[in-house]
């Protein structure tokens, strides 16, 4: 497991993200997989930065990741109080569709095979398999 700690600034994820993506390329993940992980990492980082650490430059964000020939597993942990992911409104419904924010978690869940939070809600674990389970692929295309 590679472990990195970065400051709470928008550009801090850039270097870590670049390293993760190059490891995915080295393990022959396809372009769809690389795009998906890139998007999920960016969205998770944005959530940690804005909602977790509330842009406080004195707080840090920890990123742990492990790339194997089968999957990538990423943990992203902020220093915030956490949140309950089950009460986040669905950005696809009603008036939420017209709101400028609130789509990050939906995208993380759509592009990764596993997205789960610790009890406090300040640490997310995400997994994307190199060969995606067929069920998950179909689920993404389902219109609710």
């Amino acid at each position: 497991m590679v472990s990195k700690v970065v400051e709470s600034t928008p550009s801090a994820i850039e270097g870590v993200c670049r390293r993760i993506l190059s490891e995915l390329e080295a393990k022959n993940f396809n372009q769809d997989g690389i795009f998906a992980v890139h998007l999920a990492v960016e969205e998770a980082f944005l959530n940690a930065l804005r909602h977790g650490n509330k842009m406080d430059p004195n707080k840090e964000i920890k990123i742990d990741y492990l790339v194997s020939g089968e999957k990538i597993e990423i943990f992203m942990t902020d220093e915030g109080n956490g949140f309950d992911p089950d009460v986040v409104p669905d950005p696809r419904c009603g008036e939420n569709l017209y709101k400028p924010e609130g789509r990050g978690l939906l995208l993380m869940r759509s592009y990764m095979d596993v997205v789960e939070f610790n009890e406090r809600g300040n640490s997310v674990r995400m997994v994307r398999y190199k060969e995606r389970p067929r069920l998950k692929k179909n689920l993404n295309q389902t219109q609710v």
């Binding site: 998007l39 944005l46 017209y98 924010e101 789509r103």
Partner: peptide, 16 residues
Amino acid sequence: RFLSSAVLGLLIRVSK
């Protein structure tokens, strides 16, 4: 070739 959800927010603000 790549954008985040923050850009979607920008598009919504511009459209409004």
